[in-house]
Design a protein around this nucleic acid. Sequence first.
DNA 1: CGAACGCTTGAGCAAATTCAAGTGCGGTGG
DNA 2: CCACCGCACTTGAATTTGCTCAAGCGTTCG
Lengths: 211, 211
Amino acid sequence: MSATAKSAPIVLLRQAPDARHAFGAEPPVLHGAGSEVYAQGDRADRLFRVEFGAVRIHRLLADGRRQICAFYLPGEVFGFEADGVHHFFAEAVSATGLTALRGGAGAEAAHDHLGAALRSLVRAQEHLLVVGRQNAAERIAAFLLDMAERQGGLEQFDLPMSRSDIGDYLGLTIETVSRVFSKLRAQGIIRLLGLRSVEVKKPGVLRAMCE
Amino acid sequence: MSATAKSAPIVLLRQAPDARHAFGAEPPVLHGAGSEVYAQGDRADRLFRVEFGAVRIHRLLADGRRQICAFYLPGEVFGFEADGVHHFFAEAVSATGLTALRGGAGAEAAHDHLGAALRSLVRAQEHLLVVGRQNAAERIAAFLLDMAERQGGLEQFDLPMSRSDIGDYLGLTIETVSRVFSKLRAQGIIRLLGLRSVEVKKPGVLRAMCE
DNA sequence: CGAACGCTTGAGCAAATTCAAGTGCGGTGG
DNA sequence: CCACCGCACTTGAATTTGCTCAAGCGTTCG
C-alpha cells in the first residue's frame, strides 16, 4: 500500500535517557520513518520500549488491504507474541527511538511482560468495539480522545501518523478520515494546526460522540 | 439487546473430569445459557477454563450496540485483565462448565497466565483485521474456519452461539449474517444441519475467501 | 520551477443496515 | 397426538453510509 523506505536501524550515540524499566537495558536504536522493526514470522525474543516517535503494528491481506492493530507511543512497550514468533509487522511511523528490553527469565521481567501484554489486550479489545460497532465519526472521535489522553491529556497534541495510517487503524478509507476531520473542523469541535497537529476545542462533544 | 436470563451459577456435583492444568483446581461450576460470569468493573482475581459450553466476552455502547470481543471454547482460558478490574462482561453462551484457576503468585502460574494472555492478544489482533478490513462474506468465512479449527478441524461442527452473537462478534447485523449463510448454502459451500450445526463442504473455497 | 506526495473535496455507486413481513422449529397445553 | 404459540431465523424492499473513482490543492524537495 503506502511505499515505505526500509532503512537499517542506526544505533543512537547518546545513552538511554533514563533506566526506569526493570529489566536489562540496551542502547536505544533509531528507526527512520517507515522502517521495519520486525516482520511477521520473525523470532520474537525481546520487547521494545518507545523512547520517542511512534510504532505501528499491522498486518496485510493478500490484495494489499492493511489493518493497523495498534500504535505505540513514547513510554509504551510492545513486541510480545505467543509461540515465540511474530504474527504482525512492526514499523516506525516517524523517526523513532526504541530501547530493547531483553525478555529475560527473571520473575520480575515476566511480571512486567504480563502487565504490558494485558494492557495491550484491553486496548485491542476496546479498539474492536470501535471498529466493529461505531460509525466513521464515532471512530475518529474515539481515536482523537485516545491520542490526546496518551499524550498527557492536553487539548493540543500531535498525530504522528498519516491519514492513511489513521484510516487503516480505524477501518476507514483516507477519504472518509479526511471528510470527518473537515466536518469536525467546520463544527468547531477541533482545530487543525497543520496536518499532524490537532487542538480539541470541545472535548465534551467528542466524548459524547463515543457514547 | 438480546434478553439474557441471569441465573446464579450452580456448583456441579461431579468433580472436574481431569486436572491437566498446572495451578490450583476448584470444582467446576455450571453456568446456564446467558448467565453472567463476571461484569465490567468486577475485581479480576482469577482465571477460568472452559470445560464444556462456550463463553462470550463483550462490551456495550450506551445505545445498546454490542461488540463481542471473543468467544472461549472448551479447553480455553479467559478472565485476565489489567489493573485487577474487568473491562468487559463475560457470559455463558449456552450451558457452560467453568473451572476457576486461582491466579496464584507462583512463577509457573504467572507463566501460564502470560501464555494464555498472549494467545488472546494475537487472537484479538487477528480478529481486528477481519472486522476492520473484510467484507461480510469474508468475515463469515473466517469465522467458520476459526470455529472449525478450534473444535478439532473436522468438517462438521457446532455453532454454540446465536446469529445475533455471531453478528455482534463480526460487526454485522443478524440479517446480514443470515443472508451470507444462505448464500454460502446456495453455493454448496456449507450445509446447515440445524440452526446450530454446520458442515463445511468446500473448505478450500472458504479459505480462499479470506485471502 | 516542476514533480511528487499527502491531503481534501465532489459525484456516483455498492454494500450493508433498517424496516417490515414471513417461515419454521421446539415446546406447551389441550 | 395435534394445534398453537413464541422465538429465532430468513427473506425482501428501501435507505443510508462509506467506498470508489476522479479531480484539485498545497507543501516539500530536487
